[in-house]
Amino acid sequence: MKNSYSFQIYSSANQLPESWDKLAIATIFLSKEYLVILEKSAPENMSCHFIGIFEKEILVGIAVSQFVDLNQLESFGDRDKCIKSWIRNSVFKNFCSHILLIGNNTLTGQNAFIISENANTTEVLKTLKKAVLGLKEIFKNQGKKVHMCGLKDFCEEELSHFKIPEFDPYLRFSTQPNMIFNVRDNWKKEDDYVAALSKKYRDQYKRARKKATDLVKKQLSLEEIKDQEEVIYDLYYHVAKSAPFNTFFLPKNHFAVFKEQLQENFLFYGYFENEKLIGFNTLIKNGTDLDTYFLGYDDSIQREKMLYLNMLYDMIGYAIKEQFKSIIFARTALEIKSSVGAKPLKMYGLMSHNNKLINRRLDFFFRYLEPETIWKERHPFQD
């Protein structure tokens, strides 16, 4: 019997079929309006494609892919000094520099694809694997050899869908968890959250708030984001280059394009000291979820004013006020996010290397180059 599933690869959001957004309704991060942002302001070393999967003529699956060229980066991150950092950088540049990803490397969570409830999930994933081969052919014709293919970020239940022969060569791995903050139904204002904290963490809240009393927090308009673009980028870059591992850096126009495209669904908050921008954070409204996005700050002031912690409290206050169900705090800074009440959700990915010898030892290389993060979960609530 002839397989009725097929795929189509699109290089621009303008090419997407009319029915695309009917499937993308579950998340803003696969909607046409968001994919335009990826197209207009993706990192310099990243190129995006969009995949439609059809059962006969009907669109039953949508996905986003990103090709990342690590050779275009000056640094992968400053966490590990000395020999280990040198080895890691050398390995990535020579053997893993061209990565083809089904998913979104700028976000945490399952933003890779959506499958229609009426579709056969196994057949859609088999077709998605064929689309990966089609993408590899596109890049081969451009003179770019794909070293690694990956899919991210899935919870344990979602991972079970990949138990099919097509994905047998792929290594299943987990990295830092996604930190999720659930807003309780009985919280109507920030004070309700503070009242739920144990004394130790209520004292932490009061201390942080006191430290930042002279800072002014303001939501920036598109024009203000454009006016402050250089300062914003410097603050962002300072934080980004200190991250454990980088596969990209955002372009300077990224936040302006975001605001222009998503408008009220994208919130940009600036923190000012004596009218000077010394930090910012960004939020994306995604249905009942509030997704945290990139931030930046002046490190000396951050420590003195406990700015990062205050940003987390501000996000919680906004989510409660606007009655969001949860805040997606993403990965990194696990302990401090845990201290404000976020809980870890274990995330999984899949990866495969084009070199069969390396692919057989992929587990070893992955564990050596990116060891498990050791951190202590906090329990800030009274109950």
Rank of each mutant, 00 (worst) to 15 (best):
residue 151 L to P: 02
residue 298 D to K: 08
residue 63 A to I: 09
residue 228 Q to A: 12
residue 77 G to Y: 04
residue 64 V to C: 00
residue 316 I to M: 03
residue 39 E to V: 03
residue 288 T to H: 09
residue 296 G to Y: 10
residue 256 A to T: 00
residue 146 V to Y: 05
residue 325 K to Y: 12
residue 362 L to E: 01
residue 333 A to E: 13
residue 130 K to A: 06
residue 216 V to T: 14
residue 229 E to T: 12
residue 305 K to Q: 11
residue 336 I to N: 06
residue 301 I to S: 03
residue 63 A to L: 09
residue 190 E to A: 12
residue 19 S to V: 09
residue 163 K to A: 13
residue 164 I to S: 06
residue 11 S to E: 12
residue 364 F to I: 15
residue 358 I to N: 03
residue 254 H to N: 10
residue 217 K to S: 11
residue 254 H to K: 04
residue 74 E to N: 15
residue 377 E to W: 06
residue 204 Q to N: 14
residue 305 K to P: 01
residue 130 K to Y: 01
residue 188 K to L: 15
residue 377 E to M: 11
residue 243 A to C: 09
residue 291 D to M: 07
residue 214 D to C: 12
residue 379 H to W: 06
residue 370 E to I: 15
residue 59 L to Y: 03
residue 302 Q to P: 02
residue 134 G to A: 00
residue 11 S to C: 05
residue 212 A to G: 13
residue 37 I to F: 02
residue 51 I to N: 04
residue 148 M to A: 06
residue 108 T to L: 08
residue 179 M to R: 07
residue 335 E to F: 12
residue 111 N to A: 09
residue 16 L to V: 02
residue 103 G to R: 08
residue 193 Y to L: 09
residue 103 G to E: 02
residue 54 F to R: 10
residue 237 Y to F: 15
residue 184 R to L: 09
residue 362 L to C: 03
residue 338 S to T: 10
residue 262 L to N: 00
residue 52 G to C: 03
residue 107 L to E: 05
residue 297 Y to F: 15
residue 302 Q to A: 15
residue 376 K to V: 09
residue 255 F to K: 09
residue 101 L to A: 01
residue 235 L to M: 02
residue 70 L to A: 04
residue 221 S to F: 05
residue 94 N to Y: 04
residue 165 P to N: 10
residue 257 V to W: 01
residue 152 K to D: 03
residue 131 A to D: 03
residue 317 G to T: 02
residue 198 S to N: 15
residue 325 K to G: 12
residue 191 D to I: 14
residue 237 Y to T: 05
residue 268 F to R: 00
residue 369 L to D: 07
residue 151 L to Q: 07
residue 15 Q to L: 07
residue 109 G to M: 10
residue 342 A to G: 08
residue 166 E to S: 09
residue 261 Q to Y: 04
residue 377 E to F: 03
residue 9 I to C: 08
residue 223 E to Q: 13
residue 301 I to T: 06
residue 224 E to L: 08
residue 292 T to I: 10
residue 277 L to C: 03
residue 1 M to K: 12
residue 89 N to H: 08
residue 118 N to H: 11
residue 90 S to P: 01
residue 43 P to E: 06
residue 341 G to F: 02
residue 103 G to I: 09
residue 51 I to C: 03
residue 135 L to K: 11
residue 313 Y to V: 08
residue 70 L to C: 07
residue 243 A to F: 05
residue 44 E to Q: 13
residue 280 F to A: 04
residue 376 K to N: 13
residue 150 G to D: 06
residue 296 G to P: 06
residue 293 Y to T: 04
residue 311 M to V: 14
residue 164 I to F: 02
residue 259 K to P: 01
residue 143 G to V: 07
residue 295 L to S: 15
residue 255 F to E: 05
residue 304 E to S: 14
residue 143 G to Y: 06
residue 124 V to L: 10
residue 324 F to K: 04
residue 94 N to K: 13
residue 36 V to D: 03
residue 276 K to M: 11
